[in-house]
C-alpha cells in the first residue's frame, strides 16, 4: 500500500471514531447535527477514482449506521456524495487546473473555491439523509430547518478543521 492509501485508512478510522464518539452527542437546538464524516469523502485526493470513492463511502456510511441504528441510511447518502464528487470537481476546476498531488482542500485552493466545492455536496448529503429518514415530505419545513441548521453546523466545524490542520505548507 502506498503512502496516501495508508493515510486514507488512518483518516477513515479517525473520522468514524470522531463521529460516533464525539459528534453523535452534539446536537444543537434539537435540529442541528454535525456530520463531519462526510469530510472524509470530500478531502480524499483529487485523482481518487469514483469507484474507490463509492466503496470507501459505503464502508464508512455503513460503520456510522451501526452506531446510529439506521442501517443503510448514512451509507446511501454518502455513496451519492462519493458518486457526484468527481463530476463536481471537474465542473469547478479553477483556471490553470488543480496542483498535482494536492487534495481538494482550503489550503490549496482558497476559501471561496472551498465553499463552492463543499456546500452543495454537503447539502445533497443532508437533504437525502433527512428526507429519507423522515420517510417523505410530511413535515417538510421542519425537515428543511434540520437540513439548513445541520449544514451550517457541519460547515463551521469543517472550516475550523481546515484552518487548524492544513496550514499552508509553502
Amino acid at each position: 500500500m502506498n503512502r496516501s492509501g495508508l493515510f486514507a485508512v488512518i483518516y477513515f478510522v479517525l473520522y468514524l471514531l470522531a463521529q460516533v464518539m464525539l459528534f453523535r452527542q452534539l446536537v444543537l437546538f434539537n435540529t442541528a447535527f454535525c456530520f463531519i464524516y462526510v469530510a472524509f469523502i470530500l478531502l480524499l485526493p483529487i485523482e481518487t477514482n469514483t469507484i474507490t470513492l463509492m466503496l470507501s463511502g459505503f464502508l464508512l456510511g455503513f460503520g456510522i449506521d451501526i452506531f446510529y441504528d439506521s442501517l443503510g441510511l448514512h451509507a446511501l447518502s454518502l455513496v451519492l456524495v462519493a458518486y457526484v464528487r468527481n463530476y463536481w470537481l471537474t465542473t469547478i476546476t479553477p483556471q490553470g487546473g488543480y496542483d498535482a498531488g494536492e487534495g481538494p482542500t482550503l489550503a490549496s485552493n482558497g476559501l471561496q473555491w472551498f465553499l463552492v466545492y463543499s456546500l452543495p455536496l454537503l447539502f445533497i448529503h443532508h437533504a437525502v439523509l433527512f428526507f429519507l429518514e423522515a420517510g417523505g415530505f410530511s413535515v417538510f419545513w421542519y425537515t428543511m430547518s434540520k437540513i439548513v441548521t445541520s449544514l451550517l453546523f457541519t460547515m463551521t466545524i469543517l472550516l475550523l478543521f481546515q484552518y487548524f490542520s492544513f496550514r499552508r505548507r509553502r
Binding site: 469514483t50 469507484i51 463509492m54 466503496l55 459505503f58 456510511g61 455503513f62 449506521d65 451501526i66 452506531f67 441504528d69 439506521s70 442501517l71 443503510g72 441510511l73 451509507a75 446511501l76 455513496v79 451519492l80 458518486y83 429519507l132 420517510g135
Partner: peptide, 28 residues
C-alpha cells in the same frame, strides 16, 4: 453501475431496518 448497485443495496438495508425485527449483528 457500481453506484446503482451500492444505492440499491443501501435502500434495501434501510427498508429492512425500518421493519420490526432485524439482524442481530449490525446495530448498537
Amino acid at each position: 453501475l457500481t453506484f446503482l448497485f451500492l444505492e440499491i443495496l443501501c435502500a434495501w438495508l434501510w427498508v429492512g431496518n425500518s421493519q420490526y425485527q432485524n439482524t442481530r449483528f449490525f446495530n448498537s
